[in-house]
């Protein structure tokens, strides 16, 4: 009798173990750059949420902005025998060796948010946004919004020489190309920060006849736009009505400004890079379906009509 009981329990334990294996919950390693910005913190939060939603066990490694830490983390993931690895690469070069090690162990690697200069067969796919397209969406929104009126635009660029600054500038110029009534009259760097955004906007207002000639501000990120909004208010003008504000990133604070009518539009750089990555990974593991080498995330346009307060509440808790 006792023996039978023991056997039964053993069988039961075995069964649960076996079923656990057969359901095959994935284990995925995620090497994050670090916490360089609010957006990155949100990306980490969303990645964890997406993993939890799908029942994926996520092993998280923070590299504190160092490539050597990322390579160490990836080697660690390989040694632990994870099913896949997500990397948000801190730099574009120097990944070949460690990616080859992963490939030898048949562990698929997915790049998040940035691409690298390695042979394309070393990773499964890259999930990134298209920065030129983001700028284009912003430009097209402005062209549609002003219609045929003449419009002088001042541009707050990101850090000089950085790829988002170059690409978002290029995209915006493409977006307004068809509208000959829209002209960029001034363009300066605000270093992606609020302080510089405000300081640069103050001098733009002075240089353009007290700001009455400026029809719109295009900022390469929301933080600079928030700074510009304050500068416009202090100059005695109404941001959002006297001067339109369009920017990129869609961080929570810009939605507060939009709710107050002080900002007009923002293009989202979604922190959800992991969702499409997990989708591609599951399809690949299930049917061996190779995804495209580049998965473009959606660059969604938000305006005052999109219930900004609701979006703000939804984004507030993501760690921006």
């Amino acid at each position: 009798m006792k023996k039978a009981l023991v056997a039964a329990t053993a069988a039961a334990i075995f069964a649960t173990l076996a079923s656990g294996v057969s359901a095959k919950s994935l284990t995925v390693g995620f090497s994050q750059i670090g916490s360089e910005s609010g957006w990155r913190a949100a990306e980490t939060t969303v990645t964890k949420q997406e993993a939890e939603k799908r029942g994926v066990t996520l092993k998280f490694a923070d590299a504190q902005q160092k490539q050597e830490n990322q390579i160490k983390a990836i080697r660690g993931f390989i040694a632990q025998g994870v099913d896949a690895i997500l990397i948000a690469p801190v730099v574009a070069t120097g990944w070949d060796a460690v990616l080859k090690e992963a490939k030898e162990e048949k562990i698929p690697v997915i790049l998040l948010d940035r691409e690298i200069e390695s042979p394309k067969d070393l990773y499964l796919t890259a999930v990134t946004s298209d920065q030129v397209f983001e700028g284009k969406v912003a430009g097209e929104w402005l062209a549609k919004d002003v219609g045929s009126k003449d419009c002088k635009v001042v541009e707050l660029q990101g850090t000089t020489g950085s790829s988002p600054a170059i690409n978002r500038k290029k995209g915006f110029e493409e977006g307004i190309k068809a509208a000959s009534n829209i002209k960029i009259v001034r363009s300066q760097t605000g270093d992606f920060t609020r302080t510089k955004g405000k300081e640069v906007m103050e001098s733009f207002i002075k240089a353009e006849g007290g700001g009455k000639d400026i029809c719109a501000v295009y900022a390469h990120n929301d933080d600079m736009a928030v700074g510009a909004i304050q500068a416009i208010k202090e100059a005695g003008l109404k941001p959002g009505t006297d001067i339109k504000i369009v920017s990129i990133d869609a961080v929570p604070d810009i939605f507060q400004a939009m709710a107050k009518g002080e900002a007009n539009a923002t293009v989202e750089l979604t922190p959800n890079m992991a969702g499409p990555a997990f989708d591609a990974l599951e399809a690949y593991l299930k049917d061996k379906k190779e995804p495209k080498k580049w998965i473009q995330t959606e660059s969604k346009l938000y305006t005052q009509k999109d219930d900004p307060m609701k979006v703000y509440e939804a984004k507030k808790g993501l760690g921006y």
Binding site: T195, V226, Q230
Partner: peptide, 14 residues
């Protein structure tokens, strides 16, 4: 002054 100016504390850039 820097913090009051932008009505926010930006630990990375202030």
């Amino acid at each position: 002054i820097v913090t009051a100016d932008i009505r926010g504390a930006d630990a990375n850039n202030a």
